[in-house]
Amino acid sequence: MPTEDLATRLRAAAPETTATVEPLPGTDGRLRFPPDQALAVFRACQGVLGYRHLSMVGGIDWVDHREVFYLVWSDETRRYLMLSSDLPLPAPHIESATAVWPSANYHERETWEMVGIGFDHHPDLRHLLMPDGYQFNPLLRSFKLHEPEELEVKVRHV
């Protein structure tokens, strides 16, 4: 589906959205939308546009904001579409997609614990891969891995 066509169809399905479509190789494009229009965009994509399968959800920690992206797939056109939204700091959050794509459940739990993005109205937002009560978000840039020289553990013999 050409990107202009996709933008037109999205606007027809959800007139209140101000989403824009930019090209992304190998897909129908990347659809950028403001976080407060999330649910309308999800419903339009899953319903009229026919992207029934949610493939993945992930987050990126940029310098001044965080980005959440959704990869969705249409069995009719056999193409992917990427949805992405920029979330402002300090408390990035967006509406959960679980009401539209039930498969978003685990994806959002993982994104929440790894990248620290809150998902409003998620039915079961708790740790998935990390232990309960884990305090950090490992995929943030501020979470540093050891530098090579620090890996040298100094063993103290008692």
Binding site: R52, D75, S103
Partner: peptide, 18 residues
């Protein structure tokens, strides 16, 4: 299968040829 994101042989065993 489609709603829950199930893919692969599980999905194809339900008749979806993806």
């Amino acid at each position: 299968c489609v709603d829950l994101g199930v893919t692969g042989p599980m999905l194809r065993s339900a008749g979806v040829r993806r």
